[in-house]
């Protein structure tokens, strides 16, 4: 067992290292900005005095590595500095929005993960039947659609008739049921996009194994097709399925940007797009760091879980 823990510790260390390098990249990217950041923000007409004052305010007169350390130490403690656009602390801007984004992602995940695993298993079980072909063609189309297309079609069909609101305005006072109702369309959009992907991968992971001799063995032992799939194929397909689920969860958290914009949902993605438009660098950096951290964390979890799902690694010789 100790070999497993060493492996997990190694992965964790590697994850932390990756995150560190990413933070350097995100911070360093603004250093690549052509010209002077202060001048860039204030515009060409600014007087040298205002520029100098602004530089001091941003700490631009300090050397880059000092600024990086300050930024990173602050970020670790939840202090991301202040927004250039409205001078408010970034932490305040992010706090409720992060919650909203996570809520939407979890909402979509709660529907899509069970749904896609079930559809994937069924498609593998009834492979090459009409059900499988239809599910596949639909999934393929759904993957191919841009998210805003799916979103606007849903608005056109469901919001037009007044069934659901086309704008998902929520605030901390909105009740839980009301929030679920208002965010149904964005959650459905996300669900449609990720379910297709996860279903296809689940199906492929299982079908990949169906040619293995041990599956043939199970069939020759007289096992039912359902048992062959669930008891013999699925446990061996766990690693790729876990990976694809994690990938899609990560996608749900980071890929909500477009959906949040379409439905005017107050999440992190919308904040990021707004800040990009305003060239509000500290906010963009902070949000990018949070997204990257979530992404790394999920991939790390998937990595560890799929290692744990492999009996060859857990039960050594």
């Amino acid at each position: 067992m100790s070999a497993i823990w060493t492996m997990i510790a190694k992965r964790l260390g590697l994850g932390l290292l990756t995150l560190f390098v990413i933070s350097v990249l995100i911070f360093g990217a603004t250093e690549l900005l052509p010209g002077d950041l202060a001048k860039n923000i204030l515009g060409q007409s600014a007087t040298p005095e205002t520029v100098a004052a602004f530089r001091r305010e941003l700490g631009l007169d300090l050397p880059a590595h000092t600024r990086y350390l300050n930024w990173l130490l602050g970020a670790v403690q939840g202090d991301f500095g202040t927004s250039l656009a409205n001078k408010r602390p970034i932490a305040d801007l992010i706090a409720t929005r992060l919650g909203n984004t996570l809520f939407l992602a979890l909402y979509a995940a709660a529907i899509s993960i069970p749904l896609s695993l079930m559809l994937g298993v069924l498609a593998a079980l009834y492979r090459n039947t009409i059900f499988d072909r239809t599910a596949n063609a639909l999934a393929l189309s759904s993957i191919s659609f841009p998210e805003f297309f799916v979103a606007y079609i849903l608005i056109f069909i469901l919001a037009q008739s007044g069934l659901f609101p086309s704008m998902s305005r929520v605030d901390p006072d909105t009740g839980f049921a009301e929030t679920l109702y208002r965010t149904f369309l964005p959650a459905l959009t996300l669900t449609l996009v990720v379910t297709a992907h996860m279903m296809r991968m689940t199906r492929a992971a299982i079908i990949n194994l169906l040619a293995s001799p041990y599956i043939e063995m199970a069939r020759l032992k007289g096992m039912t097709p359902m048992r062959v799939i669930l008891h013999h194929a699925l446990p061996n397909a766990l690693a790729p399925i876990i990976t694809v689920v994690a990938l899609n969860l990560a996608y749900l958290i980071t890929g909500v940007v477009v959906v949040e914009v379409v439905f005017v949902y107050p999440g992190l993605g919308q904040l990021m797009v707004d800040s990009v438009a305003k060239r509000d660098f500290p906010v963009v950096q902070a949000v990018a760091l949070i997204f990257a951290a979530a992404y790394v964390l999920l991939n790390l979890t998937a990595d560890v879980l799929s290692t744990l799902s492999n009996p060859r690694l857990i039960h050594r010789k």
Binding site: Y251, T254, G255, A288
Partner: peptide, 10 residues
């Protein structure tokens, strides 16, 4: 390890 859309926005 950096999400593609976020990276491109940055």
């Amino acid at each position: 390890a950096i999400p593609a859309l976020i990276f491109s926005l940055l």
